[in-house]
Computed example of a mutant assay.
Amino acid sequence: MDWASNRKRTVYFWGVVLAIPVLILIWIFRPEEGFIHWLYPLFILLCVSWAWRLFHKAKLESIEREVVATTAAFFTIKLGYYFFWGDLTKNWVEIESTYWVMAFLMILLYIIFDARRGLIYSLALFVMTLALGLFRLGSEIALGQHREEFLAFVRSEMRLFAMTGLLYTLAIIKDQLADAHRQVLQMHALARTDPLTGLPNRLALSEVLEEASQHMFGLYVVLLDIDHFKQINDRYGHDVGDQVLKEVGRRLRSSLRKGDMLGRWGGEEFMIVMRGESQHDVLAAVERLREDIAFWPFDQVGAVSASFGVAEGHIGDSIHNLLERADKALYQAKHLGRNRVELSPA
């Protein structure tokens, strides 16, 4: 579960928890009103259910939709009740407060849904409240009755309609900003990803090394080069050579320890950035990587091996020196017959 979902869940939970005592107090102190007396206990039980499910990590999307649908239905019924039951003038405080709940509900719609669906559902709320008000006040205003209430009704409807347009505009801007942010993240990832193997490329590895240089002790850089790769390309073609590169990357990635980083340094050369307290354990892990490449034959080309050069970082060391020692160790592994692991002297 991501950070945004956790934050939404927390906000929803405390919002529902704080609403429960408010609803209970209204129900206790205003039992004479039929709507409150009969329907508020049901709504309180629903709020308790939502709080319980939010606390126990139930699916957030289903709770959101249930809350919105139930709340919209509940307060639409409440609006209709106070429009048509009892004295309209005395009921207007409740009607006005219900309009504010509808405005809050519109905000919630745009939080939960995308801009298009938020607009559709907000307009549906607007149309329902408009229809209820016109049905109740339309004929009476023609007779000169409830003019103040009608003006208040018009103001409330205009406020809802304005909010619908404003929220839709803000939602469109939010969606555009989110799309732009995603594109930036994609471009950032593409700039740091090798397109053939899908591994981090030289730029990404360089950034990791730069960050790791703050703590050189226990840092290991491993350079590996596929043995006789030029002969593979010359004999089988570059397409087969590309498949070998991808398969080497796949085998290395599947065998890495947690916390190690693998990338393609360039050509047929890969790099692994590792950390370890024991030189013996690091060399054993690199040896397993070598075996994973050499043990199983590759499609079309048969046996493939790689040579590994390992350099250990020390306090006061530099990344340049570390890479230089790893490269010399790799050259030594090639010189001594290939398909082996060599550790650079300190």
Results as ranks from 00 to 15, higher is better:
Tyr110Ser: 05
Tyr110Arg: 03
Ile111Trp: 01
Ile112Met: 06
Ile112Lys: 03
Ile112Gln: 05
Asp114Gln: 03
Asp114Ser: 05
Asp114Phe: 04
Ala115Asn: 09
Ala115Ser: 13
Ala115Val: 03
Ala115Thr: 02
Ala115Ile: 00
Arg116Tyr: 11
Arg117Glu: 09
Gly118Trp: 00
Leu119Gln: 05
Leu119Tyr: 01
Ile120Tyr: 13
Tyr121Asp: 05
Tyr121Ser: 08
Leu123Thr: 07
Leu123Phe: 08
Ala124Gly: 08
Ala124Asn: 06
Leu125Tyr: 00
Phe126Ile: 00
Met128Cys: 14
Thr129Gln: 08
Thr129Val: 12
Ala131Lys: 01
Ala131Val: 08
Ala131Phe: 10
Ala131Gln: 09
Leu132Thr: 08
Gly133Leu: 01
Gly133Thr: 01
Gly133His: 02
Leu134Ile: 13
Leu134Asn: 13
Leu134Lys: 01
Phe135Glu: 11
Phe135Ala: 12
Phe135Thr: 14
Phe135Ser: 10
Ser139Pro: 13
Ser139His: 14
Glu140Met: 12
Glu140Pro: 08
Ala142Gln: 13
Ala142Leu: 14
Leu143Arg: 15
Leu143Cys: 13
Gly144Asn: 11
Gln145Tyr: 06
Gln145Asn: 14
His146Gln: 09
His146Ser: 07
Arg147Pro: 04
Arg147Met: 09
Glu148Leu: 14
Glu148Lys: 15
Glu149Arg: 07
Phe150Glu: 03
Phe150Asp: 06
Leu151Cys: 04
Leu151Asn: 09
Leu151Ile: 14
Leu151Met: 14
Ala152Arg: 07
Phe153Gln: 10
Phe153Glu: 01
Phe153Arg: 02
Phe153Ser: 11
Phe153Leu: 14
Val154Gln: 04
Val154Lys: 00
Arg155Tyr: 12
Arg155Pro: 00
Arg155Lys: 10
Glu157Gln: 10
Arg159Ile: 12
Phe161Ala: 13
Phe161Ile: 07
Ala162Pro: 11
Ala162Leu: 12
Met163Lys: 06
Gly165Asn: 10
Gly165Arg: 02
Leu166Cys: 13
Leu167Ser: 03
Leu167Asn: 01
Leu167Arg: 03
Leu167Gln: 06
Tyr168Leu: 00
Tyr168His: 06
Tyr168Lys: 04
Tyr168Ala: 00
Thr169Cys: 07
Leu170Pro: 03
Leu170Phe: 06
Leu170Gln: 05
Leu170Glu: 04
Ala171Trp: 02
Ala171His: 03
Ala171Lys: 02
Ile172Trp: 02
Ile172Pro: 02
Ile172Asn: 03
Ile172Met: 06
Ile173Arg: 15
Ile173Gly: 12
Lys174Phe: 07
Lys174Trp: 09
Gln176Ser: 04
Gln176Met: 08
Leu177Gly: 06
Leu177Tyr: 11
Leu177Asp: 12
Ala178Lys: 04
Asp179Met: 08
Gln183Asn: 11
Gln183Ser: 11
Gln183Ile: 07
Val184Leu: 15
Leu185Met: 14
Leu185Phe: 09
Leu185Ile: 08
Met187Glu: 15
His188Ala: 15
Ala189Asp: 14
Ala191Val: 01
Ala191Gln: 07
Ala191Met: 07
Ala191Cys: 07
Arg192Met: 13
Arg192Thr: 12
Thr193His: 07
Thr193Glu: 09
Asp194Gln: 02
Pro195Ala: 10
Leu196Val: 05
Leu196Gln: 10
Leu196Trp: 10
Thr197Gln: 01
Gly198Val: 06
Gly198Pro: 08
Leu199Asn: 08
Leu199Lys: 04
Leu199His: 05
Leu199Gln: 06
Leu199Ser: 05
Pro200Asp: 05
Pro200His: 00
Asn201His: 11
Asn201Lys: 10
Arg202Asp: 03
Arg202Val: 01
